[in-house]
């Protein structure tokens, strides 16, 4: 709670003059989140598909 109060009071102190800076940081954070999420999913999907193929190859001809 104290931490939040501190952050809030710092933000108020800096005031509207620094609003553009916050916006810039948050904008790029937003882009990063937007990119990270699908990138992680695609990475995981590719890995799983690879592992499935390998498992298939390993057991090929044995069944």
């Amino acid at each position: 709670m104290n931490g939040l109060l501190l952050i809030a009071s710092i933000m108020r102190l800096v005031g509207d003059a620094a609003a553009d800076q916050y916006d810039t940081i948050l904008f790029w954070l937003m882009i990063a989140l937007w990119v990270i999420m699908p990138a992680f999913i695609v990475y995981e999907e590719i890995n799983e598909r690879k592992a499935l193929k390998e498992a298939e190859k390993a057991t090929e001809g044995q069944v």
């Binding site: 108020r12 948050l26 954070l29 989140l33 999420m37």
Partner: peptide, 23 residues
């Protein structure tokens, strides 16, 4: 309202964060 910058950006960041947690 306490955020001095653009409301849309902070809302988008929080929405994406919640989306990430849900994922």
């Amino acid at each position: 309202a306490w955020y001095p910058g653009d409301f849309g950006v902070i809302m988008a960041v929080i929405t994406l964060l919640i989306g990430l947690i849900c994922f």
